[in-house]
């Protein structure tokens, strides 16, 4: 059986700058896979390649054996890939409920005409969407914010709403771009529990980019360390953290404190 996600020798460059350099790795069904590395290592670029915001110059990206390059960006949700964004990209003028409902867009069976007439079929479909969304709301404890507009919500809550919106699409593969950045210690702990539950209860494969090594080592099964667009090391969190190339990349390129100060 083919792996859920496969990067096969993928290269992407912007002009002369190589952002991702012959990168190969696979993500297996049911695991939590983390990508770590200093800023500019190409982690987010790898995500954007999966989301089809960029075309790889070389190499193949496959989802369960299916070549992703054939699909436009808006097909990805339908293929079972959902994602969050580093700087939160929610629909600010809509409520939490509406944001989560947009996550259900891939299940839309109605069309313009049936919707403006609001046929019984559309009403029934709406009931199903709302039922599915309420489950996500319960799972993430979002009840107090259901009717609130995103624009007035605190950062930590938005981060959770974005996770919820991704879950509402019922994905096979969930991409989390820095799920803990900007969160407090407690919020990060909640996030860790949710990631565990997403994997164990929902059986969703998680691929994440994260700086917080504590979170990474507590939830992930395997870790890929990147620097300058290529693979440094791949293995369990402990293996990667003690890998000489990783240590050198982190210490050699200035220590962690410097890097965080620069963010």
């Amino acid at each position: 059986m083919s792996p859920l996600l496969e990067f096969d020798n993928v290269t992407l460059s912007f002009g002369g700058l190589v952002a991702v350099d012959r990168l190969s790795f696979t993500v297996e069904n049911g695991e939590v896979f983390a990508i770590v590395g200093p800023n500019g290592a190409g982690k987010s670029t790898a995500f954007n390649l999966i989301s089809r915001f960029y075309d790889p110059v070389e190499g193949k990206i496959r989802l369960a054996g299916d070549d992703l390059v054939q699909h436009p960006s808006h097909d990805l949700a339908g293929l079972g890939v959902a994602r969050t964004f580093q700087n939160i990209e929610l629909f600010d003028q809509a409520t939490v409920l509406e944001n989560l409902l947009i996550g259900r867009h891939r299940f839309r069976k109605s069309n313009l005409l049936t919707e403006i007439a609001f046929t019984p079929f559309v009403r029934d479909q709406e009931r199903q969407h709302r039922h599915a969304v309420e489950e996500v709301i319960d799972f993430l404890d979002l009840q107090p914010y259901r009717e609130k507009r995103i624009a007035g919500l605190p950062y930590g809550v938005r981060k959770v709403v974005e996770l919820g919106r991704a879950l509402a699409t019922k994905p096979r593969l969930l991409l989390l771009d820095e799920p803990a950045s900007g969160l407090s210690v407690e919020e990060t702990r909640d996030m860790a529990y949710w990631i565990e539950d997403i994997k164990k209860q929902m059986g969703i494969t998680v691929l994440m980019v994260e700086h917080d090594m504590h979170l990474v080592s507590s939830v992930s099964d395997r870790v890929l360390a990147m620097a300058d667009g290529h693979k440094l090391a791949l293995g369990t969190p402990d293996e990667v953290q003690s890998h000489p190339a990783v240590l050198e990349a982190y210490l050699g390129a200035g220590d962690t404190a410097d890097r965080e100060a620069a963010e």
């Binding site: 989301s51 915001f53 436009p72 960006s73 808006h74 097909d75 990805l76 949700a77 339908g78 959902a82 994602r83 964004f85 990209e89 929610l90 629909f91 947009i102 996550g103 867009h105 891939r106 919106r165 699409t169």
Partner: peptide, 9 residues
């Protein structure tokens, strides 16, 4: 950008 990611053409 996130409309796209949610499957909106």
């Amino acid at each position: 950008i996130s409309a796209q990611a949610m499957g909106v053409n």
